[in-house]
């Protein structure tokens, strides 16, 4: 019997040295046992590698950035939907999450299902709200403050102990060893991602992350903790290993159950040499290293599609501890006419 076909639109095809989660999510969907995925790529730039990976992505469309107007972006998605009949949309780009959370009901009436966090869930875990989140849910969080001016930054740096992490509201994080260095990063980040910029107390230790999926009713559908083994200059894991840290699994269950988290998420933590865990970030989407979870036995992208389609999903009970990932980069050879066609016609 042939498997059911599901058309899934996916963004975050920027598979660069700071990769978006699109391609790893697609790799999981390609391996789905329960359906056959037709993958529609949504790209913001004409050089996003995923657009040219034809063995993974069936058809890619250029779409406008949310900053160019949400209605414009939605209209583009609607026109793609008319051609392709999108069943499920999985956004993987931080800046598009908020407008798509706001538009989820509208998209649903038009036949496009999503499985995203609620507005409240999205907002309370924002970097600028993390200290309040930690207090509310009894999770250890390093001191952090949103700043919107150089004067604010100087004041906050005086209140903290160097070094500091200087973070953009969506992406980017830099380690600053003194207020002067922090100011340089403040300008760099605010120019790229806007204000506020977040100043966080640096915590020394081992970086551990968890990729997880919540069903929106308080149940964890799956969770795989990972220790970063090889970290790039952008702080991204280039290699990692699935670990059976009971505290991380218990913390994930606690957060998902208390917040009734809906959708994919990534918890970023630092474990100190004294065995304390500091939550440094919660990303409200599937992270780029999700394929480790797939490889370890939890196909979270496949489960997310079922949740989006309101189909029952059995929680994963286990994963293969010790499964590792090692990222690599590859040079694709692309015909210039494909690039030209994509640029001019907006689809490939």
């Amino acid at each position: 019997m042939s498997k059911k076909k599901i058309t899934i639109a996916i963004s975050g095809l920027n598979n660069t040295d700071n990769p978006g989660p699109g391609i790893p999510v697609i790799r999981g969907l390609r391996e789905a046992a329960s359906f056959e995925a037709k993958i529609i790529g949504l790209a913001y730039e004409n050089l996003e590698p995923g657009a040219y990976l034809h063995d993974l992505v069936d058809h890619t469309y250029l779409i406008p950035y949310p900053s160019q107007g949400v209605e414009r972006m939605l209209n583009r998605i609607r026109s793609i939907h008319q051609k392709e009949g999108i069943d499920v949309l999985i956004p993987n780009f931080d800046a598009e999450l908020l407008p798509l959370i706001k538009s989820a009901d509208l998209l649903k009436t038009e036949g496009i299902q999503t499985f995203l966090p609620t507005m409240e869930q999205y907002e309370e875990r924002m970097k600028s709200n993390l200290p309040q989140f930690g207090e509310k849910y009894n999770v250890l969080v390093p001191k952090s403050f949103p700043v919107s001016s150089p004067a604010d930054l100087t004041r906050v740096c005086r209140e903290l102990e160097a070094p500091f992490m200087i973070k953009g509201k969506f992406y980017d994080a830099y380690l600053a060893h003194n207020p002067e260095e922090a100011l340089g990063y403040y300008y760099k980040i605010s120019a790229k991602w806007g204000l506020p910029v977040i100043v966080q107390q640096y915590v020394r230790g081992t970086e551990v992350n968890v990729v997880a999926l919540g069903d929106g009713k308080g149940q964890t559908i799956g969770a795989v903790p990972m220790k970063k083994q090889y970290i790039t200059d952008k702080g991204k894991a280039w290699g990692g290993i699935a670990i059976a840290d009971p505290f991380l699994l218990q913390l994930t269950d606690q957060i998902i159950s208390q917040t009734r988290w809906r959708g994919g998420m990534e918890l970023e933590l630092v474990k100190t040499s004294g065995g304390r865990y500091f939550l440094i970030e919660i990303n409200p989407r599937i992270p780029a290293w999700v394929y480790l979870a797939v490889g370890a036995g939890q196909n979270l992208p496949e489960a997310l599609v079922h949740l989006a389609l309101d189909q029952p999903v059995e929680p994963f009970k286990e994963f293969k501890v010790g499964t590792m990932f090692i990222r690599y980069s590859i040079d694709m050879i692309v015909d210039v006419t494909a690039h030209q066609r994509f640029t001019l016609q907006g689809e490939l």
């Binding site: 990972m226 220790k227 670990i243 840290d245 009971p246 010790g322």
Partner: peptide, 18 residues
């Protein structure tokens, strides 16, 4: 008790990944 010891001489701690 969770440690994994291989005959080749490696010791793996699944809780920490070390």
């Amino acid at each position: 008790p969770s440690l994994q010891i291989s005959d080749q001489g490696t010791l793996f701690d699944p809780e920490t990944g070390d």
